[in-house]
């Protein structure tokens, strides 16, 4: 097992270097330099422009810039924002918990609803219930979530006034972040109502972000389940007179879990992609919104560092999923 993990880690190294080259190269290729953006409609003298480019180290040959960057990376220096001048890593660490919190809630929602729905559909295969569930799942799977988010805001926040529009918690509450997770911090703070407030702010973004994974998980569960239900040992169990739900619960579910776990693992990338849109719509202060804003602000350093950090997170998550998968199913370890 250790060897398996170690092997996986080794493979990550060239990938990570490749990722760093790509992140670096992209950003150098962006048209329009950030110094020009600083001045906006106002005009900067060419000499001054050159001087600032030099101060930012943007005038040196690419490979030297890359080398410096790599050396910095090894020392844990992901660069500084060209605009705010804050450290990219610090900003990432401040904003990342917000994304994790949202993604975690979304995946929990997706699993909590998706697996039972998929199982129900499989057991009741061919009935109107199956068709309704699968139809809904397909609609969810086909949903343009940016539009979905807008509709939910119009209806629940605008028309009904049930949920807050954007943010993470009512601004009435203020406490120093301890974990960065608003749900936990609001409990720690001990302020009355803070936790409830944090929950109400989470509802809509969670629904929006969970939509696609929920649909995928429901569909996967159903087909994995159907496959397992068709297998001999389940048929045997059923012929022995076990009730269908008992069969499902005991035997089939465990065997159907393997493809489902993989799907959940694969959804992390999808989730982060979805987070970009969801966070933009709900002004959720996470890394998705941070990246989009930085792309538009041409903040080279942030886009570069952010891409790299996000890629690292995805690679680590995939590694963990791989390892878990290996634990559940020793055959693939080889």
């Amino acid at each position: 097992m250790l060897r398996f993990i170690f092997g996986r880690l080794l493979v990550l190294i060239p990938t990570f270097i490749g990722v760093s080259i790509i992140a670096f190269a992209f950003i150098r290729l962006l048209p329009g330099d950030p110094v020009m953006l600083m001045s906006g409609e106002r005009v900067m003298a060419p000499e001054r422009h050159a001087q600032i480019m030099a101060e930012l180290g943007l005038d040196r040959p690419m490979y030297i810039q890359y080398f410096d960057y790599l050396v910095g990376l090894l020392q844990g220096d992901f660069g500084k924002s060209i605009i705010s001048k804050r450290s990219v890593l610090t900003d990432f660490l401040t904003l990342f918990p917000a994304t994790v919190e949202l993604s975690f809630c979304a995946i929990v929602l997706a699993v909590a609803l998706g697996i039972p729905a998929g199982m129900l559909a499989a057991v009741k295969r061919g009935t109107w219930l199956d068709q309704t569930i699968m139809g809904t799942a397909l609609v969810g799977y086909s949903m343009p979530i940016f539009w979905w988010g807008l509709l939910l805001i119009i209806f629940f926040s605008g028309y009904l006034g049930w949920t807050p529009v954007s943010g993470r918690i009512s601004l009435m509450y203020f406490f120093k972040p301890v974990t960065g997770f608003m749900l936990i911090d609001s409990l720690i703070s001990g302020q009355a109502g803070a936790f409830k407030s944090a929950v109400t702010y989470l509802i809509l973004p969670t629904i929006v972000l969970a939509t696609i994974p929920l649909a995928v998980i429901a569909r996967q569960t159903r087909s994995a389940m159907l496959e397992v239900l068709g297998e001999d040992y389940v048929r045997t169990a059923r012929s022995k007179g076990l009730s269908p739900f008992r069969v499902v619960g005991l035997h089939a579910l465990r065997n159907a879990m393997i493809p489902v776990i993989t799907t959940i693992g694969l959804q992390i990338g999808v989730l982060l992609a979805g987070a970009i849109l969801t966070e933009s719509i709900f002004s959720w202060p996470g890394i998705g919104k941070w990246m989009v804003d930085s792309v538009f602000k041409r903040d080279y350093a942030v886009v570069q560092g952010g891409l790299l950090l996000i890629a690292a997170v995805i690679m680590i998550v995939n590694l963990v999923v791989d390892v878990l998968y290996g634990l559940v199913n020793p055959r693939i370890r080889r």
Binding site: V270, L272, G274, M291, V292, V295
Partner: peptide, 12 residues
């Protein structure tokens, strides 16, 4: 694959 697809497309 190490990048979220939409983010990569956005930067591209």
């Amino acid at each position: 694959l190490a990048f979220p697809s939409l983010l990569l497309a956005l930067v591209l």
